[in-house]
C-alpha cells in the first residue's frame, strides 16, 4: 500500500495519452505502464520514435529531489550510474492539475529472478560483481542507493549486467535514507541505522540475494537477526554464496569494493580446485546428512577469508 498523502489526485494515464511538457514542449505518447513506486508511476512512452521511460508524480517535491540526483549522476564522467536523464517538465491536465514528470533512458531487460531461473545460479557471481562496481562508483561520488531491492533491478543484455532502474531512494551520504522497503532495510531488522552509508546498501544487497531464495519474503518475528540467519542456512546451500551473504549481513565489508574482492577471489579459488571440491562432495554424500555440509562450508570460508585478508594487507602495503 502506498501512502497517499498529496492533495492532488493520483492519476492513471491510459495507453495513447499524449503528454505535452509545459516548459520544453516535448510530446510523449504513453505505450504502457511499467510500474508504480512510493512516489509516482513510470510509463513506457514514445517520443520522436524513440522509447523512453517517463516518471510522473503528484509529489512535485520528491520528484524534483530525484531529478537532482539524476543531474548529479550526469556530472560523473566515465561511469554510467543510472539511466540518463533526458527531460524534466510539467504536465497540465484538462482540469488544470499540474503533475511534474521526468524522462529518462529506457532500459530493457528482465527481472533477476527470471534470468537466474533460465540461465543458472552461477550467473549471480558475475552479476553481483558488476553491481558492486557500480555501487562503489556511486559511493565514491558521495551517494548511497538506498532502496536496493529486486524490483529496482533489471538484467540488461549486451552486455549482461545487473542494473538499477529507479533512483528514488538515492541519498547523500550522512543523511537519512530517503526511501526504503522494509524487507531490505537494516533498520527494520534491528541490524543498523537508516543513515546513508555504504554499508546500508551492502546489507540491502544481502537481502536481494536472500529474496531470490524466498520470493515472498518472510517476517522478522521475535529475534530478527536469528530469523534471517536461519533462513540463509536453510535455503542458500552454495557455500560461497552463503558465506558472502552472511558477511554482508554482519557488516564485515565497509566498502563495495571489499565485497567485490571477496566474491571474485573466493570464486576464482573455488574454481581453481575442482579436485578438492570433488573429494569433499564424495565425503559428504557418503555420510549423506545435511549437517556434514557445514564443515565444508567452514573450510571454504576460512580459505576465502584468509585470501581476502592477504589481499587487503597487500593493498595497505603498496
Amino acid at each position: 500500500m502506498t501512502p497517499q498523502t498529496s492533495k492532488k489526485p493520483n492519476i492513471d494515464l491510459p495507453k495513447g495519452t499524449m503528454i505535452k511538457g509545459k516548459w520544453h514542449h516535448q510530446t510523449y505518447r504513453v505505450i504502457e505502464r511499467l510500474g508504480a513506486g512510493a512516489i509516482g508511476t513510470v510509463y513506457l512512452c514514445e517520443s520522436s520514435q524513440k522509447k523512453v521511460a517517463l516518471k510522473l508524480s503528484n509529489h512535485s517535491h520528491s520528484l524534483t529531489s530525484e531529478v537532482n540526483v539524476l543531474r548529479a549522476f550526469k556530472q560523473v564522467q566515465g561511469h554510467s550510474l543510472g539511466p540518463a536523464l533526458l527531460d524534466v517538465d510539467d504536465f497540465v491536465t484538462n482540469n488544470n492539475c499540474i503533475y511534474t514528470f521526468y524522462v529518462m533512458e529506457y532500459l530493457s531487460g528482465e527481472p533477476l529472478h527470471d534470468f537466474i531461473k533460465k540461465r543458472g545460479m552461477e550467473w549471480i557471481y558475475s552479476l553481483l560483481i558488476g553491481l558492486l562496481n557500480d555501487l562503489q562508483a556511486l559511493h565514491e561520488n558521495g551517494y548511497v542507493f538506498g532502496d536496493l531491492k529486486l524490483d529496482n533491478l533489471l538484467v540488461t543484455h549486451k552486455p549482461t549486467r545487473l542494473k538499477w532502474v529507479d533512483v528514488g531512494g538515492t541519498t547523500q551520504q550522512g543523511r537519512l535514507i530517503k526511501e526504503y522497503t522494509e524487507f531490505y532495510d537494516r533498520g527494520y531488522w534491528h541490524m543498523g541505522s537508516r543513515k546513508a552509508e555504504p554499508s546500508y546498501d551492502l546489507f540491502a544487497l544481502a537481502m536481494v540475494v536472500i529474496r531470490l531464495f524466498y520470493p515472498n519474503g518472510f517476517l522478522k518475528r521475535n529475534d530478527p537477526k536469528k530469523t534471517i540467519q536461519q533462513k540463509v542456512y536453510q535455503n542458500i546451500r552454495e557455500p560461497l554464496l552463503q558465506a558472502f551473504v552472511m558477511q554482508l549481513l554482519q557488516g564485515k565489508f565497509h566498502q563495495a569494493k571489499e565485497a567485490k574482492q571477496f566474491l571474485l577471489q573466493s570464486y576464482l579459488q573455488q574454481s581453481k580446485q575442482p579436485s578438492q571440491r570433488k573429494k569433499q562432495k564424495q565425503r559428504s554424500s557418503q555420510q549423506n546428512t545435511s549437517e556434514t555440509e557445514y564443515p565444508v562450508f567452514e573450510i571454504v570460508s576460512i580459505f576465502s577469508v584468509g585470501g581476502f585478508l592477504s589481499i587487503y594487507v597487500a593493498i595497505f602495503l603498496f
Binding site: 516548459w23 517535491h61 524534483t64 537532482n68 524534466v88 517538465d89 510539467d90 499540474i98
Partner: peptide, 16 residues
Amino acid sequence: IEELPPEQRGEIMEVV
C-alpha cells in the same frame, strides 16, 4: 516553487 521552471525548482528543492 511550483510556478518556477523545472531547473530553478531543482535548486530550491535542494535547499528544502
